[in-house]
């Protein structure tokens, strides 16, 4: 196969046979090592959440009262809390909580954003004006106040948290989707599609949606990180998942805060878990944004940042 070299980038002149997904992974590892590391951590986090029972040596609520407040050791890798529960096992199960809430809320919020953003951005006119003013109104409420009100009405629990966060982020994110749609809509290929008689739903699904996938994916990763953080904050305030269900925010609050000086690992370990996961999701998301942004294509994302 003939290859052309232009600058530092090679172009295959023949049809590329590698799948786009593999191509993406290849570029991720070659051009964005930090992002690739973030991706690996995300995958580890994913598997930890899914296979929590297999990984955790103890149940999340399994008490060994004799081994109360033990420091990290071979038996209890990350120590135990005030009623002798294994901190490592609780963090592993907490990963599942964060995973379920994070992915569900991020996913539903993206659906909401996409629905509002695509319809308002594509149809414009009065409909756009009215809906966007409602979005403005919604966004003028402080997030935390909305959450507190919602939880006090519906009671604490996983699904309540997911619903409230989905709505909160979904409505705010519709702006980003809408602006992406406005750009894509102006492309000649949308008009060309209209000129061959493509119906409106088909234009939306075949010609608009695939071309806003890049911002949608990036939005998803940022939402994922944000939701995990907010869930931790809510659980810390006692508005999230009620105990004894394990949640990183809850662990920080109930056990961590009360025994901070006798058993610092009770606060440090879940805190570290939150930090590592959120940091790496962000790294991964940043790398994805650079790789998926067509303006950055061909520069390997290096020109802008100088390093990773």
């Amino acid at each position: 196969m003939a290859e052309l070299t232009v600058g530092t980038r090679r172009f295959d002149t023949a049809t590329t046979r590698r799948s786009p997904f593999f191509e993406f992974l290849h570029r991720l590892f070659r051009e964005k090592p930090l992002g690739a590391f973030g991706a690996v951590v995300c995958v580890v986090f994913l598997f930890t959440g899914i296979f929590a029972e297999l990984i955790a040596p103890y149940g999340y609520n399994e008490m060994n009262p004799i081994d109360r407040l033990k420091a990290p050791s071979i038996t209890y890798w990350l120590g135990t809390d005030q009623i002798g529960r294994d901190v490592f096992s609780r963090i592993v199960h907490g990963a599942r909580t964060s995973l379920i809430i994070g992915f569900s809320a991020a996913f539903i919020s993206i659906l909401i954003s996409t629905f509002i953003g695509v319809t308002t951005g594509f149809f414009r006119g009065k409909f756009d004006m009215i809906v966007q003013r409602m979005v403005d109104a919604w966004m003028s409420f402080p997030d935390l106040v909305v959450v507190i009100v919602a939880v006090s009405v519906f009671g604490p629990g996983m699904w309540q948290v997911i619903l409230v966060l989905s709505l909160l982020y979904g409505i705010a994110g519709s702006r980003i989707v809408r602006s992406a749609v406005l750009t894509v809509k102006e492309n000649d290929y949308v008009r060309a599609a209209e000129s061959i008689g493509v119906s409106v739903p088909r234009i939306l699904f075949r010609h608009i949606l695939p071309n806003i996938m890049a911002p949608l994916i990036v939005l998803f990763t940022t939402r994922l990180a944000a939701v995990i953080l907010v869930e931790a904050a809510l659980s810390f305030l006692g508005l999230g998942v009620p105990p004894p269900a394990p949640s990183w925010g809850g662990m920080l609050s109930f056990e961590g805060r009360s025994y901070m000086f006798q058993a610092p690992w009770l606060a440090i370990m879940p805190g570290l878990a939150i930090t590592i996961v959120v940091y790496n999701i962000n790294m991964f998301g940043d790398a994805m944004r650079d790789l998926l942004d067509p303006r950055m294509r061909g520069f390997g994302g290096k020109k802008k940042t100088g390093q990773f």
């Binding site: 290929y189 008009r191 060309a192 599609a193 000129s195 071309n211």
Partner: peptide, 24 residues
């Protein structure tokens, strides 16, 4: 009109670089 567009009357646009959908 949609039944006529692309079926009985077709149009070719000026900019070939942007008149094809990049993701199909």
């Amino acid at each position: 009109v949609r039944k006529i567009r692309g079926n009985r009357i077709a149009m070719i646009f000026q900019e070939p670089m942007t008149s094809l959908n990049p993701s199909l």
